[in-house]
Design a protein around this nucleic acid. Structure first.
Length: 513
RNA sequence: GCCCGGUUCGUCUAGCGGUCUAGGACAUCGCCCUCUCACGGCGAAGAUCACGGGUUCGAAUCCCGUACCGGGUACCA
């Protein structure tokens, strides 16, 4: 243990490209990366594409892209296992020569039979060379029959290792038996290629999912047969869905690209994932932890042993915090992309916002700003801001009943439109948000609010009963950013138009009843 | 079946023999702020520490058993 400390740490993330980068894998990548950054070591990526049946280039591309998006980029060029076949072959040869591996001619039928028999007797099935007669094997060999290559596992005794997360784990060698390391077509298998590549790449610590625990003793046997000291191991508990089953597609989003599409920020996902199954040494700490802090405090020793349920709600909360804390320019750029997807005209040079006093960029910046503290994902913004781009097609049903179901109420709404219209110019002379600093908008809002409030007081109606109908008329909804901010970005004409259109609609509605 | 693990509020976790009448975060509920929503602030509720035995003056913390959950049991990774 001490001697490994003297070597510069080298860790790797080794996904098999059979699908999207799953959040479970992403977390494994993250923990490796954090470990490397914390220890000043090297983080590598190796694509394990030896299973040609299931591996695709598209998956490789996606995985690499997701890693990059998360900021988990390797310190050396990405390795592809399929391109390392010559190295695997050389090591295989070594094992064959030293007698640590042998050609196994035992036919599949015989294996199935042995397996069946072991199960019937309540034993674990562990193949041994002795189970197939030598002379028969020689006959098949002479006849050029197909064979697999098996690793000759030690007979008797135990293989043990000290997992950084799980502690001491030991397994009886006889429960493992002689396992296959190369297929009949000559291609090597995971347990073998993995070890060879990790040796060749100088890996000092292997951190991967808990599902690999059973592979570890086999791999340790191979290290020893090759005369190499095995690296350290750290296995990570699995991520579960709300039903406590292994997290899978049927639980909803599980791929990193899906989270990206949902409008999750990479730093929020990283932060959330880091805290799933790991906690810093402090008893109390701010869970929104910048990357530097994460790196500084990270240690595999503090990884939890038990599987964790993925809590989507908490991720959304954390993402909201990151949206609010991110530099405005960054959020603005990201949101603009999404707004443009839905309303492509905003990127046209001739785009004119509804408030003619404003040009596009300050207008966009302004409305985006209004939605920031109301959004948990980037995808929330377009929904949040839709009424700035489209006139309301309908009005909230309950609010209509409450605020616009009598001629008096509609008349009141129209009267507020008059007050607003009259106040507009004057408010602009007091403080013009179009040309002045940040507080100008606040002052303008106050100037707009004042006459409306005074009128409400005189009429003896609560201000809320004045503001809500206007909000309903201009947005169609009962919830929005502060009313006067909304009105400003809508502009005078659009505001008045919408109020009158709504009043008309409300009257027609009453008639039809 | 067999092998290997795991088990603290609904969820993520702190806890490594006395400081625990178990701490924090998300979610929930209430209050405050308030033109609505949100943000923010304050507060409440929520865990007989899976269960049963030990060890000990003393156990969420150590040991054993049981239950439940998970992983593995491939010529997948």
């Amino acid at each position: 243990m001490i001697e490994t400390m003297t070597k510069k740490p080298r860790v790797r993330f080794a996904p098999s490209p059979t699908g999207l980068l799953h959040v479970g894998s992403a977390r494994a990548a993250l923990f490796n990366w954090l470990y490397a950054r914390h220890t000043g070591g090297t983080f590598l990526v190796r694509i394990e594409d030896t299973d040609l049946e299931r591996s695709t280039e598209e998956a490789t591309r996606q995985i690499l892209e997701s890693l990059e998006w998360l900021g988990l980029t390797p310190d050396e060029p990405v390795q592809y296992q399929a391109k390392r076949a010559h190295i695997h072959r050389a090591y295989l040869e070594r094992l064959l020569e030293s007698g640590h591996a042998y050609r196994c001619y035992c036919p599949k039928e015989k294996l199935d039979e042995l397996r069946e028999q072991a199960r019937a007797e309540g034993r674990i099935f562990a193949y041994r060379r002795e189970m197939f007669p030598d002379d028969e094997a020689r006959k098949l060999e002479a006849a050029g029959a197909p064979f697999v290559i098996r690793f000759r596992a030690p007979v008797g005794g135990i293989t043990a290792f000290d997992d950084i997360v799980y502690g001491h784990i030991e397994v009886e060698n006889d429960t493992i038996g002689d396992f296959v390391i190369a297929r009949a077509d000559g291609t090597p298998l995971y347990n073998f290629t993995n070890v060879v590549d990790d040796i060749d790449m100088g890996i000092t610590l292997i951190c991967r999912g808990e599902d690999h625990v059973p592979n570890t003793p086999k791999q340790i046997m191979i290290y020893r047969a090759l005369g190499v000291e095995p690296p350290q191991f750290a296995h990570l508990p699995l991520i579960l869905g709300p039903d406590k089953q292994k997290l899978s597609k049927r639980h909803g989003a599980t791929g990193v690209t899906e989270f990206r599409e949902m409008g999750i920020l990479p730093e929020a996902l990283v932060n959330y994932l880091a805290l799933l199954g790991w906690a810093p040494p402090e008893a109390e700490f701010d869970e929104v932890m910048p990357l530097e802090e994460l790196i500084a405090r990270f240690s595999l020793e503090r990884v939890s042993k038990s599987p964790a349920v993925f809590d989507h709600e908490k991720l959304l909360w954390m993402n909201g915090v990151y949206i609010r804390r991110s530099p405005r320019d960054r959020i603005e750029a990201l949101v603009r992309e999404r707004l443009a997807r839905r309303w492509p005209e905003i990127e046209s040079p001739s785009f004119q916002p509804p408030n003619p006093l404003l040009t596009r960029d300050p207008w966009l910046r302004g409305i985006i700003e209004l939605a920031i503290e109301r959004s948990r994902t980037l995808a929330d913004f377009p929904d949040q801001l839709a009424y700035f781009f489209e006139r309301p097609e309908s009005y909230d049903e309950k609010a209509t009943k409450k605020f616009l179901s009598s001629p008096a109420q509609v008349a009141q709404l129209e009267h507020t439109a008059k007050i607003l219209g009259d106040a507009w110019e004057q408010a602009c002379t007091q403080a013009n948000p179009a040309k002045a600093d940040a507080d100008a908008l606040e002052h303008w809002c106050e100037a707009m609010e004042k006459p409306l409030r005074e009128w409400a007081e005189n009429e003896n109606v609560k201000f809320g009963n004045v503001a809500q109908p206007v909000r309903l008329a201009v947005t169609g909804r009962t919830a929005s950013p502060p009313l006067f901010h909304v009105l400003w970005f809508l502009g005078r004409d659009e505001t008045l138009y919408r109020i009158h259109a709504c009043a008309q609609w409300a009257r027609a509605r009453m008639k039809n009843k």
